[in-house]
Simulated assay, not measured.
Amino acid sequence: MADASAARTRAVFEFKSATLPLIAVILKTSDLEVLAEALDAQLADSPDFFEQEPVVIDLSQLPEEDPADAGQLLDFTALRGLLARHQTQPVAVRGGSDAQNAAARAAGLSVTAMPVAPVPRPAPAPAEAPAPAPEAPQIVREVPVPANGTLVIDKPLRSGQQVYARGGDVIVTALVSYGAEVIADGNVHVYAPLRGKAIAGARGDTSARIFTTCMEAQLVAIAGIYRTAEVALPAEIAGKPARISLDGKKIVMEPIL
């Protein structure tokens, strides 16, 4: 009887490791009122963008806390509610201190050390500073794909949103707005207006390419070499289908005829 019971138990379930697409919300402030205002502003046009997707809360860019203020930790229960209000499901934190991790666990979150691949970011051009506004969290849709695989995104990417196809190519069939980022370790294809940033070869693949049916990009980069909109696009490229590649240390943009 015991052997039969054990056999049934083994057949009922099985534990296996799994690689799942996750969104990382990278916090840059611990002030939940400021965070709520910034999230409301950033996601106002797409309230159902995330559709109850799981979220990892990244604490690595929060200002360091004064040990004397150890009691002034993030209210993780309130933070979970705030993120859930925007159709996400917070499941874990990463990049926090021991005290933050303990507080997160007490609020029902797990602690993970999932890595984020480095993404090249050019220094911003000098400009007159606009009026200060709440600093929105960086919302990263980080999706691992099989080697030489392809990730397909069929929803518009709004300002402040970032999609990173780790380990393969990415195809976007909707608008990439100004201030949004689409990143891939392989090639980037945008079959719609590309107005934000497109970064191919994020881990150093110099053979990666960027393709778009409407070139209006704020920035394009391949393997860390980039070109910004500060340099005007040639007439045969601007607003038209284009292919972007790397020739040594130079970005090359060509029309697709």
Rank of each mutant, 00 (worst) to 15 (best):
E254A: 15
P122T: 05
Q100Y: 06
V116Y: 07
I244V: 12
T77V: 13
H189I: 11
A131Y: 02
S97Y: 15
V34A: 07
P255T: 15
P146V: 13
C214W: 14
V55Q: 05
D247F: 12
G160S: 02
A147P: 11
N187H: 08
H86W: 05
G81D: 07
D3K: 02
N187C: 02
A6G: 00
E181D: 14
C214I: 04
N101D: 09
A125C: 14
A232L: 14
D185S: 08
V170C: 03
G201K: 01
V145E: 02
L79E: 00
A41T: 10
T77M: 04
Q42P: 08
D31Y: 03
S110G: 13
V176Y: 01
G81M: 03
M253Y: 02
L32G: 01
L194W: 04
L82E: 00
D247Y: 15
A103C: 10
G149T: 00
N148D: 10
S30Q: 04
L35E: 11
I237V: 10
R166H: 08
G204P: 07
D40F: 06
V170L: 06
V172E: 12
V111T: 07
S207G: 01
I251W: 12
Q218H: 14
A221M: 06
L27V: 00
I139W: 01
P120Y: 10
E64W: 04
A24Y: 14
G186H: 04
A127Y: 12
L175S: 09
Y191S: 15
V91M: 01
P234H: 14
A78D: 01
D40K: 13
A200R: 12
A102Q: 12
I139E: 05
A208P: 11
Q138E: 11
V93T: 15
A221Y: 02
E236M: 15
T19E: 02
K250D: 11
K197E: 14
A38L: 13
G201M: 00
V220D: 05
V145C: 03
A229H: 10
L22V: 07
S97Q: 06
D3R: 03
P132R: 04
T77A: 10
V252W: 05
I225S: 02
E53F: 03
P47T: 06
V12E: 09
I244W: 06
A36S: 06
A223N: 08
I251M: 14
S97I: 04
K249I: 13
F76M: 00
P118T: 12
G248E: 06
P124S: 15
V152N: 09
R85M: 13
